[in-house]
Design a protein around this nucleic acid. Structure first.
Lengths: 189, 189
DNA sequence: GTCTATAGGTGGATAGAC
DNA sequence: GTCTATCCACCTATAGAC
């Protein structure tokens, strides 16, 4: 399956490009250079850029969900789960990247509709996992917060995405870590 | 001064385009169409797109600082100042726009250096004003939070920018308002 | 200050040989 | 599956007439 392998490598390179430069900030020529093939070859695997973009989000979301499932299997408490959740973001930022979907959220107005829908699914899944985790933590008394867990979840996602974006502009991962840790500390009972 | 007026109208249109589509998501042709002039005319006022971009940030930052000064002149307490600060963001989002600099933060890697520096200045000024406001509120006992005010300031900016970006992708201003109000409520003594 | 015309480059995408 | 060659639309930017 040399074909499937090439498709994966294309996705790997495109993913990095979107996370660093945005969907409108890279071209098939960039991927071709990096993979040492011609642009035409890329179109064999992904006829249109919109399709490549949709696949990118699907794969990113799947990997993200797998990471969340791994956290749940880890069996720690709510706080340690949230720490692990933040660690995913931190690892991305250390790699000089933005969250794929955070990046696409900025470019939302210019994206083809299938990409928009897929991107929102990513945020919906994040809200869902965080809501469950937060509510469980509140039930066990490990966490303390008022109001609906969904609102705390959205606050967390918004903060992580925004702080990540700004921290990257300064090249300072610590800037992100400081606010993320503070946000989690505020949830401790 | 029809010339200066034209320059301002160009900036107005370009500003809207950057806030909705991003700096890499619009072209001189878009401005020309909207202003009903030719692309060549635009280059008389702004020879290069990078220069136009830098001017955009400078003007946006100046308007923002003026708004902050107006809030300070209003003479309310720390909490009402923070409410007014959030209201600036809400107004932008109601207009289906992102914060200009939040948008540029996403595109950071593709921006010319002068735009990067100007953009960071915007965030620095926001940090500064919020830090002063937060510290004053803590002194008077109106606000309550632990740790350096600068960290709370950066948490707020990160949250507002991130939540704004995501809320815009859903076309739901209320999504932004809910998390913003919650964040401010957490600061009340 | 605004226009026409155009340069020189890059964008995504396709046809058809190998 | 990958290549060469090419298309056409669009990009930023400039020259020079009006």
């Amino acid at each position: 399956m040399a074909g499937a392998d090439t498709s994966q490598r294309i996705l790997d390179i495109a993913e990095r490009l979107v996370q660093t430069r945005g969907f409108n900030g890279f071209s098939y020529a960039d991927i071709a250079r990096s993979l040492r093939v011609t642009k035409a070859s890329l179109h064999y695997h992904f006829p249109a850029k919109a399709g490549l973009g949709k696949r990118l989000i699907e794969r990113y979301e799947q990997n993200f969900l797998n990471a969340l499932a791994a956290i749940d299997r880890g069996g720690g408490g709510a706080r340690s789960k949230l720490d692990a959740y933040v660690a995913i973001y931190t690892a991305v930022l250390r790699n000089d990247r933005m969250c794929l979907c955070g990046m696409l959220a900025a470019e939302f107005a210019t994206l083809p509709k299938p990409m928009r829908e897929e991107m929102r699914r990513f945020f919906d899944e994040n809200d869902r996992w965080l809501t469950v985790t937060l509510e469980h933590g509140r039930t066990t008394g490990e966490l303390e917060f008022s109001g609906p867990a969904l609102q705390v979840a959205r606050t967390l996602v918004g903060l992580l995405e925004g702080a990540m974006m700004i921290a990257r502009s300064y090249g300072e991962v610590g800037r992100f870590q400081a606010v993320a840790e503070r946000a989690l500390a505020d949830l401790a009972a």
